[in-house]
Nucleic acid binder design. Structure first.
Lengths: 333, 333
DNA sequence: CTGAAAGCGCTAACAA
DNA sequence: TTGTTAGCGCTTTCAG
């Protein structure tokens, strides 16, 4: 079925297949009459051009890929992650392309090619949207070498210039979240942002920066903890007088993992329930939780749209494409 | 880059491209000597056969697709849904295929083709795994017409024979969940399973069946509510004496949507907090919630593997392929 | 405006 | 064991 080829359509319409090809591709050099005739025949037999053959001739796939990272909790553990996809898809379909998702993990064992690698090397897509976490040195080289257009979601941590990315404005997010806690009356606000993590992940460094700036504006003390142990000791069983003194009114967790680490700790430490918790990325489960969590709301769909739009601009080699987009956030509820 | 073709490899190796093709495809009729030579040249130039061209020649894509349904809350709203994907991917890579995800929604407006339709009609994949919710009459016809092998996740609700599916054993799940609540000491156990929904969705009917069987075994009263209103009235402000009497000790919600409907209602009705809640599909957030939720644990990775394995069997036209797989569940924590 | 022919990169008979 | 020759289905010169 669907075996019907351009040649058969041509025969049926009594024209050459080149003519059929012209109507398929909207070539203007064609008489209204034959165009209509061919179109009718195509419709009648619901002919659909074979995309593989088309791809071979055009040396294109008419497909953009999205690679998600299995190990990226920030993405998949967030049930609202799919909104990004929705945004991407809308743009992709408007451009009459296919949207293909693949998943991958940054596996170090080079024994077998990663999905990502195969897709790039085999040119299975014309462009790629990948998460920050997948843009390591090796993958970067690969993309460049194969001249594969790409956009990164999440600001890149690679010290490369010119890597195009789309991300939420993490500095601003850090600011408004801190501002929100201050509005709530908190003064002693601590932030859980690992030193190593902040080095590795730009988004953590930025969130920290937003926090720091806000606290300093309000002349409040900046208190950063890098490991949960520090916090735990403040609430430990042998807590000294000074530990009790050191307890903050609020704690900002830079990632959901950090948040859950604290929440898990809390299950054995009712004292912790006094603290106001806050985190980034949508967290709509908050209202059902024992311990409510303040969070920042992100227009993820917009983020997806921005990424896809940027990708198409790159694919079309449009001049003057902005190399990055930051998306503002607001306090969620 | 990567422009290197089979012809150039052939020239470099001083052989015919057919010979190169033979080593690519592991043809046995080739001398060890030339095979090694060609392989060396290929490696040296990291030659990768163009998959598009290969696809055209083979009339295959070496790709299997997975279509997820945006509107299917049961899938995407569940952060652990990706485990299914992990299972699928493992099998797919073992078969040296690509795995491509697309998302779709059962949009009734026929104005534009759905992604699903395009993928099928254009033969972008050799086989497809799709959720139950996408297998409507129209899509079914399409798959059959285009002879596209497919497997459905979630038992099919279409009254078609021979639709291959993989699902959790929903009857068993209903049983163990009910059994679990009984073990906990509950006697008045109500189940929220919409009448219309149970008609439409086989999985609801099955869960209900498991509940019913267990309750009857224990000589307990089967109490089914089809709309949240019934329950709400039992807890409403003007609750009569009889309403209070009618309050169950436990409530089983057949879907997460139903569960959240109850949880949202609860926010204004502390009385409801007395009730034991239970639901299906993994719900690991339970331990962080104000109101803990009993749930059934599913080996989603296994489900993915089963679906993919079945698909490959179908693609290879293996004889005697079982038409369905039911996967047992256990109580989660 | 339309047709004929070459070719995209690879595979698969059929010969040699 | 290897080379030759057609295609796979479509696009795209280049003539007419």
């Amino acid at each position: 079925m669907s075996k019907i080829t351009i040649q058969e359509i041509a025969d049926l319409a009594g024209v050459n297949k080149a003519t059929v090809s012209r109507v398929i591709n909207g070539n203007r050099n064609i008489s209204e009459k034959t165009r209509l005739k061919v179109e009718a025949i195509m419709k009648q037999h619901n002919y659909v051009p074979n995309s593989i053959a088309r791809g071979l001739a055009f040396n294109k796939t008419f497909t953009v890929g999205f690679c998600s990272d299995y190990t990226d909790k920030r993405a998949f553990a967030n049930p609202f992650f799919y909104k990004v996809l929705q945004g991407i898809e809308e743009i992709v379909y408007n451009h009459d392309h296919m949207f293909l998702m693949m998943s991958d993990h940054d596996h170090d064992n080079k024994k077998s090619q990663s999905t990502f690698e195969r897709v790039v090397v085999e040119h299975r897509v014309d462009g790629l949207i990948i998460p920050n976490s997948l843009l390591n040195e090796r993958n970067y080289e690969l993309l460049v070498k194969h001249e594969m257009p790409y956009v990164v979601t999440g600001e890149n941590m690679l010290s490369k210039d010119g890597v195009p990315w789309v991300d939420i404005d993490n500095v601003q997010a850090g600011q408004i979240l801190t501002e929100h806690l201050i509005d709530l009356g908190c003064r002693e606000i601590m932030i859980y942002a690992g030193g190593a993590a902040a080095e590795r992940d730009k988004f953590i460094a930025d969130r920290l920066k937003g926090y720091r700036k806000t606290m300093e504006n309000h002349r409040l003390e900046v208190r950063i903890i890098e490991q949960a142990e520090v916090l735990k000791s403040l609430y430990g069983s042998e807590s000294s007088e000074s530990a009790v003194e050191g307890r903050p009114e609020a704690l900002i967790c830079c990632t959901h993992e950090q948040l859950f680490e604290i929440l898990d700790f809390e299950n054995g430490n009712p004292l912790l329930s006094e603290i106001a918790l806050a985190t980034f990325d949508d967290f709509p489960m908050s209202k059902y939780m024992k311990h409510p969590v303040h969070f920042v709301e992100v227009d993820l769909e917009m983020m997806g749209k921005a990424a896809a739009s940027m990708l198409f601009s790159l694919m079309n080699k449009e001049p003057g494409v902005p190399k990055s987009v930051s998306i503002a956030t607001r306090i969620g509820s």
